[in-house]
Amino acid sequence: MLNRYKVRLLVPTRPLGPKSSSLKISRNLVPGMATSTEHMTELSNDPWRRVSVVIVTHHSRAVIKDCLAEIGASAEVVIIDNASDDDTPDLARRARPDAIIRKNGVGVGYGAGANLGLMSVAREFALLANPDSRVDTTALTRLIEAADTYPDSALLAPTVLDDAGLYEPAHDVALFGRHLQPPRDGEQPPEGPICADHLSGAVVLLRMDSYRSIGPFDEAIFLYYEDDDFCMRIRTAGFSSILVPQAVVNHSGGGSVRPSAAYRWEKYWHMAWSRLYLEQKYHGAAACTAIALLSLLRFTAKTIGNALTLRRAKAWRDLARLFGTLGYLLHVPASRTVSRSRPVRTKAPSI
């Protein structure tokens, strides 16, 4: 049996300085069983042989070619396209002829799309990568080294940099305590691997054995917070999520869809809906209703205030949030393919 490593959950604090981590843990990670000779040999030769790359696309023509260009030739690549009308699948096929590509005539959302891709994975790990990300061999090597070092880890995430080379925090405390934390402006990445409540879904390495125990993404969530839900279920199942600062990837951010008024409406509608869904899933209907009623008042006031002051973009954002909140209260499903609009009550993981 593999030895467990024990950590305490990270607690964000204010940045300690330009060379210090802005996150504090009470105990360092303790490695489990050493990596086998066979795995070390295979890893040093070609880490991509242990990985299936799963990419969910939607109007991703502008970024998919660069994403695929970084992936090693020996990797299995699975692309799930959510009803793109900009030739994303054709461009992906030309860039990666050996890729498994599934075209959905109707967008099924990120979680359901990822589940479809993960069904095709037969390798040890799945690398879930947004189409506007770029993951090179060095970054993948660092992630797999950490996965081998900490065998109870289910999910591992790298340091994420934007196109300007600026740090984007890829880890956080659990969703329900996030509003209590101070701003993270100026935060620097930790100096070594840490255990986190939440990892960003932009790029993550998923251990498939753990995934089969945890279960798939909740397909009732069309967009947003599906990674929060998945990370909470990782902890409930007894696994860990680890940030690996030495693995560094690039994430353009927002480059995987075409910005438009319709896109912004969809974004903020689903953010409001999905947040209430998780509140009910982990805290019950009464807590969800209380937050929803307060949100109705807040978003109504903000919509009117922004409209009167001619801040049209903000008024549009808050109107979408208002309608997303109303949609949830009226049992409107978020997904176009899943009729369920209410979760099965789940116990939140302990802090």
Rank of each mutant, 00 (worst) to 15 (best):
A285Q: 15
G192A: 13
E219M: 14
E226K: 02
P193T: 09
L278C: 05
E187S: 12
Y224C: 07
D229S: 03
A292P: 06
V249Y: 07
P182N: 11
R312L: 12
R312A: 15
G253P: 02
F299S: 05
H270P: 03
W265V: 00
D218V: 02
R258A: 00
T303E: 02
L199N: 08
W269S: 06
F176A: 04
G215P: 09
D229T: 01
D228L: 11
A313I: 10
K281L: 03
G201A: 12
Q181R: 14
L175E: 10
A301G: 01
V248E: 08
W265T: 00
A285D: 10
D172F: 04
D209G: 10
L199Y: 08
A247S: 09
Y224I: 03
A261L: 11
Y263C: 00
T300H: 10
A286T: 08
V244C: 11
F217P: 02
L243M: 09
W269D: 01
R212F: 11
S213F: 05
D172I: 04
G238H: 01
S210G: 11
A287Q: 13
L296N: 05
I234G: 10
A272T: 08
R212P: 03
F230K: 05
S274A: 12
L297E: 13
P216Y: 06
L278H: 09
R184D: 04
V204T: 11
L199S: 10
L199V: 12
D197Y: 13
R207K: 12
H251V: 04
S252R: 11
L206D: 04
P216Q: 09
Y224V: 06
S274Y: 09
R233L: 08
G305F: 08
R264K: 06
E219D: 14
G253N: 06
D172E: 14
P216V: 08
A301R: 15
A237Q: 07
L296Q: 08
A261E: 04
R207A: 15
R235V: 01
Y263T: 00
L175N: 09
Q280C: 14
C288E: 14
K314A: 07
A307N: 00
A247I: 13
T236G: 05
D185C: 11
G192K: 15
I194Y: 06
L278K: 09
K281Y: 06
R178M: 07
A307K: 06
Y224M: 04
